[in-house]
Amino acid sequence: MKEMLPEVKLLPYRYKRYGVWVLIIGIPVMALLSMALLSVGLITDRQSFFAEWSYLMVYYPIIIGLALLNFSKEKDEDEMVQHLRYQAFMNGVYYLIVGILMLPFFYNVFRLLRGASIGMPDIGGMLGALALLLFYTYLSFRYKLHQTRKSLAADAE
C-alpha cells in the first residue's frame, strides 16, 4: 500500500533527557537570546517586543520540551506502553477540548463575581490551534481508512 503520510516514529529514549533539559534551561536561554538581540540593536522597540514576544520566549521551550517527552520512547518500550501512550494522547486531546471550551464559562463566572459584565477571553489562538489539531487528526484518520479500504478492495478483486 502506497503511504502518502509517513508514520510518525518515536525518538530514542535519550531524547526524554533532552526534553527535560529544554524545559529547565529553555526559558533562561530564550531570555538571554532576547537580551543579546536587544543589546546588538536587532530589537529596537523593547516594550512591544516583550509584550508581544514574551509568550513565544516562554512557550517555545515548554512546547519543544514537552514534545520531546511525549514523542520519545520509554526505557522499556513495548506494545503495552504504546497502547497506554495512544490512550494518553486521546485523553489529552479530549480534556483539551473540554478545557478550552469551558474557559469562557469560568472566565465569565469570575467576571460576574467581581461585578463586571460578561465578556470573551482572548482565546482565539487556542481555538484556532484546537480546530487545526482536530482537522488534521480527522483528515489523517479518514485518509488512512480510505487507503486501507482501497487496498482491501483491490486485493478482493
Binding site: 522499556d76 513495548d78 506494545e79 503495552m80 506502553v81 497502547h83
Partner: peptide, 16 residues
C-alpha cells in the same frame, strides 16, 4: 516485553 507487561496481562489489566 517488560515485566510490567507480563504482570498486567496476568492480572487481566492489559489484553496482549
Amino acid at each position: 516485553v517488560s515485566r510490567q507487561t507480563i504482570n498486567a496481562i496476568e492480572k487481566n489489566k492489559y489484553l496482549p
